[in-house]
Design a protein around this nucleic acid. Structure first.
Length: 681
RNA sequence: CGGGGUAUAGCGCAGCUUGGUAGCGCGCUUCGUUCGGGACGAAGAGGCCGGGGGUUCAAAUCCCCCUACCCCGACCA
């Protein structure tokens, strides 16, 4: 057994080897903070350490005085207590819960890791808590490793901080709001940007204090309209959220890259496949955001993948600028009769009937330019305290639908919706189904109606391209309308849906689309929150300047579910070493005393070596049940004492998936298991 | 918020059409047999049949009104 000692002079922790003495004597006076590597196991001793049982230590905790603050211990081999299934609070289920829709939700409940309380709300059982702790340990270590400091905010917060950023209202229905007995408004925090910002504002006021990075691991609450997929979209979930505060943009870039690097290490260690996708740039200039998606078919996010390996959130996709087309030989724009052609389908049919092309091919939807009117709902600003509504016309190829989410992303923070009857009625020049560029944008002239309407063309519309488009009269369209020659636009916008095979933004080839679950996001907030909440520090010149902020989130409980999604088979879970609730699952099968004695012996050897063991010591439970439970629970190694132990004096050791099964003499089992653990993953 | 569905024991379900005082499997308790792939027998415990109202001699069952949950389409870690 290894042990920990304290060097009195330096107060450093040192390894004292196999002394059997565990922790330094406690001083009754001072408590300090100790941070430990996540794979360290310290012997629990109530007089010395406030540690929960023999489970892994949290990343930091209060310890007696002799351990100086921030001392790091890196030790293996401390003894740890096995979890005995005869007493473990656990009940596995033979059947899937009726309302579980994805494998992780089914298996985590069946194997006794979590229990559903209400939609999107789960109780963590001992095995589940253990895995959750391990995920958190990995996150803590990596985030501590880049110098961020952990804090912890309340989940229950007063309304006021969220007023300043308008999020009390803007968060809408997703916010859990409640009142205290005096009628004061409170909320269950869905996120903590405001609190972090205000905390730094409260405590810091000089450039000398920066940079600083803070984080917490917290339970968050969102009143999701439709919780689903078990832990993947819950109403209560565990999240790590981090924030960086820097004096300038360069500092922000560094903090962002540090955090991003930590995320890559975290997901690698956790055994989660991930894709980093470029996310939509916010309205603040220069801000950057990337999402970490776990590629899973059950994912709710669609991302676009280029042959280069780069990936984009659909909202963040940009269309490569189309090459200008030389249309010097194109005939002049002419008006053609197109009766009853309010839809693209009808129009194409009408064109082929009445105005067949000269070049022999048929008209298609791709030849048409449709013009849609949308309403942009701008939020309140100085001139419009209640916000304002602007009509905008968008021209896009007739063979593509408008993607309202992509379009909206470009008007953020404004929202958009389709123009309603009243909107169109206020513009008599708009003839439904026949709206054309002549009444829009630069060529609009001085038509009498409510307001000027901006005209934006989709990024697929190339300069010099030729179109059939509306002529602003019932039954009339314009043919040979050339963009740039016959009509112009006020700007270019990404309005059209993206399709499989579209060219990627980096020009590396056609895009393909996949589904993913968002497990993390890194985001350069810029000055948004510091300005809204007036977070400023004095710079070298004594001038108050706003602080640059970044925010970085990982959905801890969601990641856990994604690990379960990625590491299971039809028989149950199969955890990677980094998060498994134990390293080895020892089964004592049969009814013979010898088998149980051999298992007990093995378990105590493993305990002394600090190996986390799940020990199925249940009497009078048939072997089949124990095998099935082991496969459900998914501990990486399984060691079986039973028939072979009686007959041959051996213990069978195998991987969770049944592969690499070996039988070794009882007295060698512990060593073989240790070797196998070292070789895992 | 639109469309579809469900609500009966800890879990998974039947019963409802055609009212008659609640059943199956798993799990749980006790005893015996079994013991390397979710064993068997016997005996048990456990239910305001989601809530409210109505019809009826009688309602899990028929009628009305709620509520909750699940699945499919617009928001989010």
């Amino acid at each position: 057994m290894a042990a920990v000692g304290i060097d009195k002079d330096t107060a450093n922790v040192r390894d004292e080897g196999n002394t059997g003495e565990a922790m330094p004597k406690a001083s009754p006076v001072t408590m300090a903070t100790l941070s430990v590597d996540p794979d360290v196991r310290l012997l629990s001793s109530p007089t010395h350490l406030a540690v929960r049982g023999s489970i892994p230590l949290r990343g930091s905790m209060m310890v007696p005085k002799p351990v100086c603050p921030f001392a790091r211990i890196s030790l293996g081999g401390m003894s740890t207590k096995a979890m005995r299934m005869s007493t473990l609070f656990l009940r596995t289920l033979r059947e899937d819960p009726a309302d579980a829709d994805v494998d992780s939700a089914k298996l985590l409940q069946r194997a006794g890791y979590v229990r559903k309380v209400a939609p999107g709300i789960f109780t963590w059982l001992p095995l589940g808590l253990k895995v959750l702790d391990k995920v958190q340990d990995v996150v803590r270590e990596e985030i501590n490793g880049i110098g961020a400091q952990e804090v912890h905010f309340p989940a229950l917060l007063p309304r006021e901080p969220y007023e300043a950023t308008h999020r009390w209202e803007e968060y809408g229905e997703n916010l859990f709001r409640l009142q205290d007995r005096h009628g004061a408004d409170y909320l269950l925090a869905p996120t903590h940007e405001e609190m972090f910002t205000l905390l730094v504002k409260d405590m810091y006021s000089s450039y000398k204090d920066l940079p600083v990075a803070l984080y917490q691991i917290q339970t968050k609450y969102r009143d999701e309209f439709r919780p689903r997929a078990g832990l993947i979209r819950g109403r209560e979930f565990v999240m790590k959220d981090a924030y960086s505060f820097t004096i300038d943009e360069e500092g922000l870039q560094k903090a962002y890259q540090d955090e991003r690097g930590a995320y890559e290490r975290i997901f690698k260690r956790l055994g989660v496949n991930y894709v980093i996708v470029h996310a939509v740039s916010g309205p603040m200039g220069g801000s950057q955001s990337e999402e970490f998606l776990a590629p899973l078919p059950i994912g709710e996010d669609t991302f676009a993948l280029a042959p280069s390996g780069k990936a984009w959130n659909v909202e963040a996709l940009t269309t490569p600028e189309p090459e200008a087309i030389d249309r010097s030989g194109t005939p002049d724009m002419t008006e053609v009769d197109t009766p009853d052609s309010k839809t693209i389908e009808n129009l194409v049919g009408r064109l082929n009937d009445l105005h067949p092309r000269q070049d022999g091919r048929e008209w298609t939807a791709e030849d048409t330019l449709k013009n849609m009117v949308v309403a942009v709902k701008h939020p309140a600003d100085e001139d419009h305290p209640d916000g304002w509504r602007e009509l905008v016309a968008v021209g896009l190829p007739g063979d593509r639908k408008v993607d309202m989410k992509r379009l909206e992303a470009q008007f953020a923070p404004a929202e958009i919706e389709e123009a309603n009857e009243a909107d169109l009625a206020s513009h008599p020049e708009f003839v439904k189904g026949y709206i054309g560029p002549r009444v829009l944008g630069p060529q609009r002239g001085d038509i009498e109606s409510a307001d000027h309407v901006r005209y934006l063309v989709d990024a697929h519309v190339a300069p010099g391209s030729e179109w059939v488009t509306g002529a602003d009269a019932d039954g009339k369209h314009l043919a040979h309308a050339v963009y740039g020659r016959d009509f112009k636009a006020d700007g270019v916008v990404e309005a059209a849906e993206v399709r499989h095979g579209d060219m990627s933004p980096d020009g590396s080839g056609p895009l393909s689309f996949e589904r993913g679950v968002e497990i993390g996001q890194v985001f350069q907030l810029g000055l948004k929150y510091s300005q809204a909440l007036d977070l400023k520090v004095l710079d070298q010149n004594g001038k108050a300047v706003p602080v640059w902020m970044g925010c970085y989130g990982i959905g801890i409980s969601r990641v856990l579910a994604c690990i379960a999604e990625m590491h299971h088979d039809e028989r149950g879970l199969a955890w990677p070493k980094a998060v498994a609730p134990a390293m080895v699952h020892v089964l004592a099968t049969g009814k013979k005393e010898e088998a149980f004695q051999a298992a007990e012996g093995l378990v105590s050897q493993l305990e002394e070596q600090g190996v986390e063991v799940l020990y199925d010591d249940r009497p009078k439970v048939s072997p089949g049940v124990k095998f099935k439970d082991a496969e459900l629970i998914g501990v990486p190694l399984v060691a079986i004492a039973g028939r072979d132990t009686i007959e041959n004096g051996t213990i069978e050791i195998r991987n969770r998936d049944g592969s690499d099964s070996v039988s070794v003499p009882v007295n060698q089992a512990a060593k073989v298991i240790l070797d196998r653990i070292a070789a895992l993953d």
